[in-house]
Design a protein around this nucleic acid. Structure first.
Lengths: 144, 144
DNA sequence: ATCAAATATCTCAAATTAAAGACAAATGAT
DNA sequence: ATCATTTGTCTTTAATTTGAGATATTTGAT
């Protein structure tokens, strides 16, 4: 029944991320947004105009889910689909002014919460943590 | 548009865990099991007999999902519900012999994959990683 | 002993997600 | 220029998950 050190790391990683997701969900409940919706807005807020495909790759959801979640966000007037004139297959997503304002009002609290989550880590430890995650993430794409 | 160091850590954590989950899903596709089903089996495999409630807490899914997923696993003869005589509200989950054998056949490959994911980390780094996750996880339960 | 509150599981409806395939547009090889 | 391939989005269907409420049991206070 012995688990290796790597397995411990794996379990800790998966469980911690899930707990964080749960906290974020609870936080977002007040705003009538779900985690996936918020993730889309977050990408646009930080990176500006993006194609649907780009956003999907960043937040790792299927194209079907993207359509669904964009529909909802568009109905809430938080973002807009903008067809790309250069490539007619492509649709860009942009925050509406309302969406921008919404994010500006929500992000401070969100950031604060994130700061709190990682508050027990020193700057140095945060740096190390990011670096280790980078190594792991890189390794994921290395073929066996 | 500047993101803090902690926010980078947060995004890296969430994205890496999601990518890993995606890898695991792809791996499990061959076995006709879904991630949640496998997670339940994993808990039982490592910790032995557990109540439904205990498993739910470990893998962080709702009670409704537990019922659903246990039904499926029971139909596949991989585990059994065993009512607890001491507390008649409680139901224990135990791997069947078939379930035990299945896990024994699958775990080596799974472990190998996990080892691969974390293969770019030294033993020392893995230890640090676990330690940092522990700090973060602990902090999650600290009230603001 | 009684009763309110807490706990463990289940049920069912609604929301979310993924998976597969369809379609249109762009790309690249010939 | 043509055509197969790839890319980006959408549609549809089926599977999964949550959330709220129901039930049964236990616990703890009176």
């Amino acid at each position: 029944m012995q688990t290796t050190c790597k397995n411990k790391a794996y379990l800790a990683l998966m469980q911690t991320s899930k707990e964080i997701q749960e906290c974020i969900r609870a936080e977002l409940a007040k705003t009538d947004l779900h985690v996936t919706e918020f993730s889309v807005l977050e990408v646009l807020y930080f990176h500006g105009k993006q194609t649907i495909h780009e956003v999907a790759q960043r937040i790792l959801v299927s194209s079907g889910s993207m359509t669904y979640v964009i529909d909802k966000l568009e109905r809430k007037h938080l973002l807009q689909r903008v067809p790309c004139p250069d490539d007619r297959r492509v649709i860009h997503l942009v925050l509406t002014r309302e969406g921008e304002e919404f994010m500006q009002s929500v992000m401070p609290g969100h950031q604060e919460r994130v700061e709190h989550f990682f508050g027990s880590l020193s700057e140095e430890e945060s740096g190390i943590f990011i670096q280790l995650l980078g190594k792991i993430k890189h390794q994921l794409h290395v073929q066996v």
